[in-house]
Design a protein around this nucleic acid. Sequence first.
DNA 1: AGACACAGGTTTTTT
DNA 2: ACCTGTGTCT
Length: 672
Amino acid sequence: MVDLSRLNPQQRDAAATLEGPVLILAGAGTGKTRTLTHRVAHMVDRGIPPDHILAVTFTNKAAREMQQRVVKLIPKLPARDDGRPTKPTICTFHSLCVRILRRHIEKLGYKRNFVIYSESEQLGVVKKILAAISGKDVKVGPRELHGLLSRIKNAGPGRSIFADEDSLAMAETLRRRYDTALKACNAVDFDDLLVLTLKLFEEHPDALEQCRARYRFIMVDEYQDTNTAQFELMRALADEHQNVCVVGDDDQSIYGWRGADVTNLLNLEEHFPGVKVIKLEQNYRSTNTILDAANAVIRNNPQRREKQLWSANGQGDLIRLQAFEDEDEEARTVVDEIEFNRMARRIPWREQAILFRTNMQARPLETALRAAGVRYHLIGGQSFFDRREIRDFLAYLKTFINPNDDASLLRIANVPSRGLSDVTMERLLAASQTHDCSVWAATNKDLVRADFQPRTRRAMEDFIELVYQCRGRLKDEHLSLVQWATDFLAEIEYAAELRKGEKNLETAENRMQNLKDLVATMDEKNDLLPAERLGQFLDDLTLDAERESEKEDAGDAVTLITTHSCKGLEYPHVHLVGCEEGLLPHTRSMEEGTLDEERRLFYVAITRAMKTLTLTHCLSRKKFGSVVPCHPSSFLKEIPDTLVEDLNEKAAEPVSVEEGADMFAAMRAALD
DNA sequence: AGACACAGGTTTTTT
DNA sequence: ACCTGTGTCT
């Protein structure tokens, strides 16, 4: 039996209310995950079969964490008939949809072995479309168009993003071309996972019934981040039984720009009348000084569900405010501060974080940290998938699973170069269009191959043979995928290819090691057949890019992180740099009229701090090469003076005897 | 096919 | 300032 008495009254109410719609308004640091995991455990105690429980999170990391904590709370899950334990489903919206679609997608005219396109593959398709219509004066870049298409898809049919008809018609045409291109490759993108599942539910009520019967108790975490498609999905599943519990904080909605719709939370009553609203306001993370500042700032936002965070942790230190001449001085001083904390106050690097609005701000910080010999790790930035070796490898895997996947095949057809030049591939692509088939199918036609030089023809035949060979080997039931992958990488001499492309031998070896590390994990799902295991491996990997960050969090190091990716994390000592008008709030958001969201971003940043918070800004900053003057962020003025220690005023005063004594005492203690 | 030069564009990021 | 993508030259 799980013990709910260790929860506070509101948390307990949330964990004990199992039926009917519930909204848990969980402010920053109020024990949201703890409440949710206890709720799941409580359900199981009350006899609800675990496989009737569905908890949806936004990231795989959050899903893993919740999974682990639930298992800890209920070590002995009830067993099924076959002796295996029944587990609650804890996953992301996207992986839930993959599971559903792997069962039912044939009803929608896709083949069961569909592939999921990663960001770069999606962009590749968009670029092709843009190139095809280059006659018209197109002013949008591929990224921009891709973002647009994504927003259209997620908004769902009937909901227009544009005011004017022309743009709408244009966007619709492009969207259709994009969808057709993907479907021709039996590929789906991230948005399709949601949209196609919705379509499935609409057109095939039996599939929906099956899911409703399975998932009778639904929880959605980070509910303020749901987009329209995700909301519709949740509603489709929960409409009948109404056993839905959403957890979120409208004040931490910072992903509106990528389609998250906070009105899903603000107007929840419209769709789930009689929803029980439970507020978690006791914060277990920060000092009251920090919470008072956060409360004061966020109060300036209209249209929010009122919350007042408080804590039993006492007042704590004042928030420190510092101004600097430029970003280099800012970086150096913050690093000095970190080192002072470590040496005089025995605060290790891992308990300190530097937060910033944009990635480019990380550069001067990294320079200063290196100069001072401080260990750090930078979160975010270059994604796993931007690495060439990973993208090549995945494209090979996708080609072997489904050679009709044009994007993947075109990517690897001539990597390493095997006599299938760009020109050849262009011609094959054209042939595929005239024959109305995939590039692979076109390449396999004698008629098509006859158009090429004997040498090229030979190269094509060799390539076809390679694909058949590798696919064929997958049929062996007892195959080790690690061995299989190692073999084909050796066969195509990929290591040599990497060395050729890299001037530095060291980085080439690094890349090869990355690949080997990845390959080594391929046989983890041992209970499946090799081909299925490969499919599962690809799905997991495509939907979860964050593998390497797990191993990097070991060791003592300062965290460098953007204000966006710090959501959900906490650090004893936080330095938020670049609190300047134009940066936080960002210029672009002021133009777009999304100042509220910037304020929430500032709110999220300051509520990461447990013990101390330092806010800094510069008087000038290099932007795109030239130096521009900067002004302090208007958000700083929203923090009551009584909570702030302005170190610029203080610098003008002499150091007090008392303070000097304190500092020396601290340093003496450090020398012990 | 590969190397180099020039133009353009630069928020935030997950799945 | 710097990175990416494109185009041109060898």
